[in-house]
Simulated scan of single mutants.
Amino acid sequence: MVGGRQTDAMNDTDKMVADALRGSWVHRLLPQSLWPYAQLARWERPIGWKLLMWPCWWAATMAFAMQGMPHGNLLENFRYVAGETILPFYLALFFLGAFVMRGAGCTYNDLVDEDIDAKVARTRSRPLPSGRVTKKQAIVFLVLQLLAGLVILLQFNWTTVVTGLISVVTILVYPFMKRITWWPQLFLGFAFSWGALVGWTAIMDAMNWPAIILYTGCICWVIAYDTMYACQDIEDDALVGVKSTARLFAENTKLAVSALYAAALGLFALAFWLTAMPWPAWLGLAGGATHMIWQIRTLDIHDPANCLVRFKSNSGFGWIIFAGLFVSAVLHF
């Protein structure tokens, strides 16, 4: 019996990706037959969909707050914003959309990068290079995820629907950029920041300068945090010829990340000013700046574990900015 349990444990380990989170809900709740698909979509690693979601939530909440007028009773305002307006429903849709589309993007990325993933220690155990999922199966799974994303998108106004559909171009282009340019993180920024445009149009039914400025700030933010993430793979990327801003910046990575974070904060501040955000939004921005300073001061680009922790902490940055904007919305209704 003891030997049998050890064998089962080894088999379970063999069915997991090297950089997947152990003990996640995927491995506790889903049958093993679905593990490869969950791993294709990175369901066991929530940081991706969180980072995709934040620009949606920020933009929608900022637009919603801008439309209101100040009132006095904060408790009644909170009940109204959280329970009687369209905002909570839209935030829920953005949560679902980010979860689904992040999974679709990862599946597509793995299809494109199968040859590269097979050469990198951290990724060669992923479902496609390890042979646990065929290309045909992965394509079917991708289509199902895209259809689910389309159903979610169709719940919004047509301006938002068109804006969301255009984002597919950024998703299609991104996986190829690491073969072409030292700036693949810029193209990830185009894709992962698109939610700022989608979130804004969902509330305003129009494209306006604050959304474009917020979108540009998010691009700077994405380049910075994904540069930290890419520091984990510098050696393998050099061996297989993959380009990245981490390799480009090299020993100047801290300085580059600092400049990108400063640009992001400046653009966020400009968007807040143009939309006349009240003091909670600015307090949230100050808290976010403090969080970014901590990241930079404690970043060790030669320690993969350190880089991963700082990268993941950007979800905390997302919460800080959102909290300031949400309280701003409550103050205005």
Rank of each mutant, 00 (worst) to 15 (best):
A38S: 09
G83S: 02
C218Y: 01
A246F: 09
I203D: 12
Y80Q: 02
F89V: 12
A38I: 02
A286W: 07
S328I: 13
V100Y: 10
A98M: 13
F187I: 06
Q137C: 01
I219D: 11
P31I: 01
G97C: 15
M69T: 13
G266I: 15
F99M: 13
L165H: 07
T290D: 05
R297Q: 15
A196N: 09
Q32H: 12
T107A: 07
G48T: 09
R310N: 10
F249E: 07
R42S: 05
L325D: 02
A63R: 08
A305Q: 14
Q155L: 06
F187K: 10
M292E: 00
V112I: 15
L29H: 10
N314Y: 04
F89H: 11
P88A: 12
M10K: 14
D233R: 00
L34G: 04
G149K: 13
G149E: 10
C106T: 00
W58S: 04
L96M: 15
L30G: 14
S193G: 05
L239I: 11
L147T: 13
A238I: 05
Q145L: 15
A20D: 14
G241F: 08
A138I: 06
H71S: 13
A263Q: 04
A286M: 13
I203Y: 12
G3N: 10
Q32W: 04
A264R: 10
L30F: 14
N306I: 09
G195W: 00
I180P: 03
L111P: 04
Y229N: 14
S258T: 15
A82N: 01
F78I: 00
D113E: 08
G3S: 05
L265K: 01
A9P: 00
W49T: 06
R28E: 06
R126D: 05
I213P: 10
R310K: 15
G48M: 03
L74G: 00
A65Y: 12
S33W: 09
A271W: 11
P55A: 04
L214E: 08
V173I: 14
R179Y: 03
H302P: 03
S130G: 05
G3L: 07
V120L: 09
V2R: 14
